[in-house]
Nucleic acid binder design. Sequence first.
DNA 1: GTAGGTTGTGCAAACGATTGCATGAGTATT
DNA 2: AATACTCATGCAATCGTTTGCACAACCTAC
Lengths: 350, 350
Amino acid sequence: MSSTLKDIAEKTGVSVSTVSRVLHDNSKKYKISEETQEKVKQAAKEMGYRINTLARGLRLQKTYEIGLIVPDIANPFFSAVIKSLAGELRKGGYNFIVYDTDEDISLERSAIKSLLEKRVDGLIIASVGQEFSHIQKIRDANIPLVMIDRCFDSLDIDSVSVDNVKGSLFAVNHLIKEGHTRIAFIQGLPGTYANETRLQGYKQALHDAGIAVDEHLIVGDDFRSLNGYLETKHLLKLSAPPTAIFTAGDLIALGSLEACRENGIRIPHDLSLVTFDDPIFTSYLSPALTAIEQPITKMTEMAAAMLYRRMRNPNDERRKVLLEPKLNVRNSVARLSTLTNITHITKHEK
Amino acid sequence: MSSTLKDIAEKTGVSVSTVSRVLHDNSKKYKISEETQEKVKQAAKEMGYRINTLARGLRLQKTYEIGLIVPDIANPFFSAVIKSLAGELRKGGYNFIVYDTDEDISLERSAIKSLLEKRVDGLIIASVGQEFSHIQKIRDANIPLVMIDRCFDSLDIDSVSVDNVKGSLFAVNHLIKEGHTRIAFIQGLPGTYANETRLQGYKQALHDAGIAVDEHLIVGDDFRSLNGYLETKHLLKLSAPPTAIFTAGDLIALGSLEACRENGIRIPHDLSLVTFDDPIFTSYLSPALTAIEQPITKMTEMAAAMLYRRMRNPNDERRKVLLEPKLNVRNSVARLSTLTNITHITKHEK
DNA sequence: GTAGGTTGTGCAAACGATTGCATGAGTATT
DNA sequence: AATACTCATGCAATCGTTTGCACAACCTAC
């Protein structure tokens, strides 16, 4: 099928080395005659030569591949990250291989295993979180690694993520400013970096405002939409339901919207909603959602840059970067009369 | 760093062959003694052995990798396809490598080149379309290939896609039934399979209803949201604007929504909207969009099955599968008085 | 005419795994 | 006691590249 250097060497009557040099070496530093170069290139084209990267990688101990692991490709946030990272890595001459772990730590382990078996040159991981012995191992084996979005405070590893605490502060402070005090938080997967830090910000905002944290208003356990749906239904049934909900991720917010619609709850009239993440469609939702936006492009640029640096220079000190989130105010939050928690006065943001 | 079979052989005092057989062979057909097996496995664990898939792939001429090429990872339709396909292939013991071509045919070519250089065992491609000489080459080189979503009628290649003509018929017939006659179509990238077939269905529906096709109402050239935005603005400025718009893809519809919002056009009161594709968020939009849903899971199941079949049996006859789309009626279409095209009578779907 | 440079190319080892064939020791059969 | 198996393992070639070293042929210079 596809021919090899040897085939071409035989056909042209030169050695394999020469063919290799002509085809892959820029053939300047070895001085191959014009004549030979022509002959070889010609034959290569005719015979449909295609380099075998397995062989090259084996010989060179370098594959020009980066492994990328995310918890959920279908989550708009991560698909945007992947897309952006793809462009970034292409610029640097690297290809990449993505694995989707479905927020399952055992799939994450096996993804890492596969990628290392493929001898990727580096890894970018948005870890499920929760546990990090397997991540630690990569670090110890001195394989270039950057954590993105999800990282571990206690682990000395290059990482870039958004300042989740600050993001939650922005969101919850906004709600408080609009008069809300009974604010529920629908979590993502407990134990993950993103979730814990967002939770922390939520609590801190309440605390700073002198509002007691009500554990009954902290619910949920997953970043997917079903979780948002179920927990919203639950919250609405409470004897003292919240006047506002803050969701830890975009899909959760969608589920929450669905539950509200089914129950005839109007947003923001009957209930206010703010979410972490701000994918393309938030502004077209009914109502347009007030949301916390993450600087995705900046994240991926930095992740790529940090990975390149680590690959060049394995022993530099590690860095942890926190980027600034942004609150995008739209129409899903109502101003609440401070006199009572029962009557809502609807008023759209302008 | 990572040890090799040779390292383990030296440490345990057996040959490389034996180590290989113990570690990768199920070691049943060669009868390795229990004792040796234990010794080898023990050493492998201690030394952190990790198979080198480059070496294995080179020797075996098989990589257990499938290449996947899509026009836009961030498009919810494709990210759903990828996710679903990932699970499907994992079941079959295959990994996969995704490339995003950004609807750019030259990136598609280079993606194919890269994947073939990696010696993937098979390819699944949602081609940009337009031109297929590069696809033809894969087929001629006898590399297992399945086209998904986007295919070429004139090319004898395994493919699975939705019946786009029928999808458009569903959409446009629905609009006609509700009294619309001035129906615009905002296209995706011209020349692509998805676009041409959707356009064809659009025209056919009009034709069947005895409505003349107005070329001024066929606009656009891209599957992204900006296209929907610009073309909607344009359509609204027409001296005789359409009463309904049918968009060729979900992102186009988002752009269209944005344009309407900016211009104070209420959907469906002032303008009806139906779109091809039905990602998770359509039902939460304002208004919930009437949309054509594609059976993604079925598509990926079939694509994987067809690829496996092709890999096992390279010379079976090729098959082209068309799956049935589905119209999901929501709240973005108003019934139009048949007496006049100027006064709209708004009426929500129940 | 001998020492030293340049030019163009080839040899062969290495990367890490797989596997058909061979082999030597032990056991069973006749 | 010769034959025939089975058992457990090793040898060595192979997959396709890359690259340090060697070398032959030619040129240049004193």
